[in-house]
Design a protein around this nucleic acid. Structure first.
Length: 581
RNA sequence: CGGGGAAUAGCUCAGCCUGGUAGAGCACUGCGUUCGGGACGCAGGGGCCGGAGGUUCGAAUCCUCUUUCCCCGACCA
């Protein structure tokens, strides 16, 4: 490829609405252009990187025995109604009607369609296992698209689905994909961590996210440096920080705390540690009939220690809150607590409230909590003496840095991550809902055991840049750079020697299968260097009269500071060797 | 969905308060001088000032509505 024939368009300044560095650099490097909120053109430069990511994914998945197919972007409502997701998905799924007023959706994912394929195509256990994948455009009408390709509405995703005979075989499929994912992200060249993730309604322990480590990540990942424990914070188990409850040492006392409505303020006012306070959160869950009419509303008081945060995913697993919950309204709070938010607590309730304590809170003694009287908190509160034992003790908080690891092998650390892949055991949730069966060896129909496996192809680009950039621009991992090598011809227009030498090297590298671009734009060197450093090409060769007079060409690796000099005949071998390394 | 903010050239922005024929830098075209880290000069092209209504002799500027975009929030009572 010659730069004069390629579409190269860089910007000195990023659009003002570009927030994160990957978005700014991709826009400046001319890899993407925004069309609407969360919707982008992938320009030729960007598409080259996307294709390289795709190629690695295809290679590894095919090697792992998966098969590529493509399912439609526009999918009929009927299939989504079979699993009930037509109603459950909410506004994230973009719906549309055709000219006959029939309902369709733009696929946010493809469990329904692939299960439909399986029930039509897979009749016998002899055909199993099967693993189908596609690399397809997805559309999710995100509440708040942002961060460029990291959370777009339209994006490119690899989604794969496995079909197995039984749970054990499904486990093998899962392990295969887990291993393939590791190879994929290794080859792409990202620093990542595979972490255990929430399994939602499916249950079980087979769900892992592949998280690229980056401070700008939207997920918090928890890991233990001394063991192999790693989990998304949504899932990471928080153990009780107090072993057993101390005996009560203080009397219950109602203390004025005017205007101090948060645990932090109260602790500061009273001059005590935040760890002696208890935070009250009020949730409401509703029982509804088929028409959606509310039959009964239950109010729950959740207690976590003052320095801890409620984990809503964990709360959603509590019996009674499984069907869904919301934060209670102020009216409901006043009705049950006789007090406005800010001074709520478990003592002296006006109406019965279900009290659920975090494991740590359940072991606290002489704690501080709201007095259900505006401007007052109780100090010296004790379970069993001042209030009944909690109705339920559960893990309902987020772990914090320094918590003991649940495997007992050290303490936990937390870092930010960008989720680029997810492997998930689905069980027979979809095969049952859609009655997708095969005949097993005993001649009886059985539901498929399924797994699903996703990789955010476009998100990988963003994640790679978040992890690899400097003040000058992108530093692509070599495997997914739009070009592996750029040859900059200095004084292209006026020096035949430069042109000859550059074309000679270009031909040599091309013949060796190197993805090389020749910058023959006759630009000033500063312009060329700035462009290619912004774009992030890993290897650069500069050929100019000045060097050729001394019998050298210059080589610069994007990641290194030092520029090296090579004899014109030696440079090709050096580059080929460093690429193959 | 709630609350803020913004919308003027391809990009970054000024002009608006105090109404009077639309500006700068970058980018683009031509010519010339330059030529190893985003050169310089001269000459150009490019804007229904997001859209609709209103006030006014006159609106980018003031008012109303609307659309789009961005930010924050939608756990921490």
């Amino acid at each position: 490829m010659r730069a004069s024939q390629f579409h190269l368009f860089t910007l000195k300044e990023a659009p003002s609405d570009a927030e994160v560095v990957s978005q700014q650099l991709m826009l400046r490097a001319g890899m993407i252009r925004k069309v609407a909120a969360g919707i982008y053109n992938y320009m030729p430069m960007g598409l080259r990187s996307i294709r390289k990511v795709e190629a690695i994914i295809r290679d590894e998945l095919d090697r792992a025995g998966a098969m590529e197919l493509v399912m439609p972007l526009v999918q009929p409502a009927e299939l989504w109604q079979e699993t009930g997701r037509w109603d459950k998905m909410g506004p994230e799924m973009l719906r549309l009607k055709d000219r006959h007023d029939r309902d369709f959706a733009l696929q946010p994912t493809s469990e329904e369609v692939v299960t439909d394929i399986a029930r039509q195509e897979l009749k016998s256990y002899r055909q199993l296992p099967k693993n189908f994948y596609q690399i397809q455009t997805k559309f999710r009408d995100e509440r708040r698209p942002r961060f460029g390709v990291m959370r777009g509405r339209e994006f490119l995703m690899k989604d794969g689905y496995s079909f197995d005979r039984d749970v054990e075989a499904a486990g093998r499929s899962y392990e295969k994909m887990y291993a393939a994912y590791g190879r994929i992200f290794d080859r792409i060249g990202l620093e990542y961590r595979a972490v255990a993730a929430d399994t939602g309604a499916i249950g079980g322990d087979r769900s892992h996210e592949f998280q690229v480590i980056a401070d700008t990540g939207e997920d918090a990942i928890v890991y233990c440096p001394d063991s192999d424990y790693a989990a998304n914070i949504e899932l990471a188990e928080a153990v009780a920080l107090l072993t057993g409850r101390a005996t009560a040492g203080r009397a219950l006392e109602k203390t004025p705390t005017p205007g101090k409505s948060t645990c932090g303020d109260v602790a500061e006012l009273l001059g005590v540690a935040l760890q002696t306070t208890v935070k009250s959160l009020v949730l409401a869950s509703e029982e509804v009939d088929e028409t959606g009419k509310v039959l009964k509303t239950t109010i729950c008081l959740l207690l976590v220690r003052g320095d801890h945060d409620l984990n809503e995913v964990k709360a959603g697993k509590i019996e009674g809150l499984k069907a869904g919950f919301r934060f209670a309204t102020e009216t409901e709070i006043i009705e049950h607590f006789g007090c406005k938010p800010g001074y709520l607590g478990p003592i002296g309730l006006k109406k019965p409230v279900r009290i659920i304590a975090d494991r740590t809170v359940a072991n606290m003694a002489d704690f501080i909590c709201g007095a259900n009287d505006e401007g007052f908190h109780y100090t010296g509160a004790n379970w069993g003496r001042d209030l009944p034992e909690p109705e339920l003790v559960a893990d309902i908080r987020n772990v914090v840095e320094g918590d003991p690891s649940p495997d007992g092998k050290g303490v936990l650390a937390i870092q930010r991550g960008i989720e680029v892949g997810h492997v998930f055991y689905l069980g027979n949730k979809y095969s049952k809902a859609m009655n997708a069966t095969f005949l097993d060896i005993d001649g009886k129909p059985k539901h498929f055991e399924m797994g699903c496996y996703g990789i955010g192809v476009t998100r990988i680009l963003g994640a790679a840049i978040e992890q690899n950039h400097d003040a000058r621009g992108i530093i692509w991992p070599a495997a997914i750079a739009p070009f592996e090598v750029v040859i900059c011809g200095v004084g292209w227009g006026k020096s035949e020697a430069v042109r000859d030498e550059a074309v000679r090297l270009y031909d040599t590298l091309k013949a060796a299968g190197v993805d090389v671009i020749l910058d023959d734009r006759d630009e000033r060197p500063g312009v060329m260097f700035a462009d290619w450093e912004l774009i992030g090409v890993p290897h650069r060769v500069t050929i100019g009269d000045r060097g050729l007079k001394e019998g050298v060409v210059e080589y610069q690796a994007r990641r290194e500071g030092e520029q090296l000099k090579f004899a014109p005949d030696a440079i090709a071998a050096h580059i080929i060797a460093s690429i193959r390394a």
